[in-house]
Simulated assay, not measured.
Amino acid sequence: MIKISILYPYRENGRFDTEYYATRHMPLAAQLFGDKLKGWSIDIGINAGPPGTPPPYVAAGHFLFDTLDDFYTVFKPHQKTLVDDIPNYTDGGNGTILVSEVKVSV
């Protein structure tokens, strides 16, 4: 299984609308990706470990696919729609993409 993660770095005074991201952007992506998408989740950063420290990432969105080709097949036709939606929830740009292989899932 392949996981596509989009990591949004924490920025002092940066804008990131977690409500919009969780209720509009990620569900939109899930709908566009259809049955190739095997699951999705969101992490909202709290801190970097010690209390009171800012998190390294304000948020991360994760998508699960059987193969990387499955991701590319569904992402490419909808890339513009999803990228055009980014300003609705953040002023911090596209985020950093991490592609990883999931070995164990619970």
Rank of each mutant, 00 (worst) to 15 (best):
R15E: 12
F16W: 04
T18Y: 11
T18Q: 11
E19K: 12
E19G: 07
E19P: 05
Y21Q: 01
A22I: 00
A22K: 12
T23P: 04
T23F: 05
H25D: 10
P27R: 09
P27G: 09
L28Y: 08
L28H: 11
L28G: 07
A30L: 08
F33M: 12
G34D: 01
K36H: 11
K36Q: 04
L37E: 03
L37Q: 02
K38G: 12
K38T: 13
W40D: 11
S41W: 15
S41E: 15
S41A: 15
I42Y: 11
I42A: 13
I42D: 09
I42C: 11
I42R: 12
D43G: 15
D43Q: 15
D43C: 12
I44T: 13
I44V: 15
G45N: 09
I46V: 15
G49Q: 06
G49C: 03
P50D: 14
P51Y: 06
G52L: 08
T53P: 10
P54D: 12
P54H: 12
P56K: 09
Y57D: 13
V58S: 14
A59L: 06
A59D: 05
G61F: 03
G61N: 06
F63A: 09
F63I: 10
L64V: 00
L64S: 08
F65N: 05
D66L: 08
T67G: 05
L68P: 02
L68W: 01
L68Y: 04
L68E: 04
D69C: 07
D69L: 06
D70C: 00
Y72Q: 14
T73W: 00
T73C: 07
V74Q: 08
K76P: 07
K76L: 14
P77D: 05
H78R: 01
Q79K: 08
Q79T: 04
Q79S: 07
Q79M: 10
K80Q: 12
K80P: 06
T81K: 09
L82C: 01
L82Q: 01
V83H: 01
V83A: 10
V83Y: 09
D84W: 02
D84F: 03
D84C: 03
P87L: 00
N88K: 00
N88Y: 04
T90S: 15
T90M: 13
D91V: 01
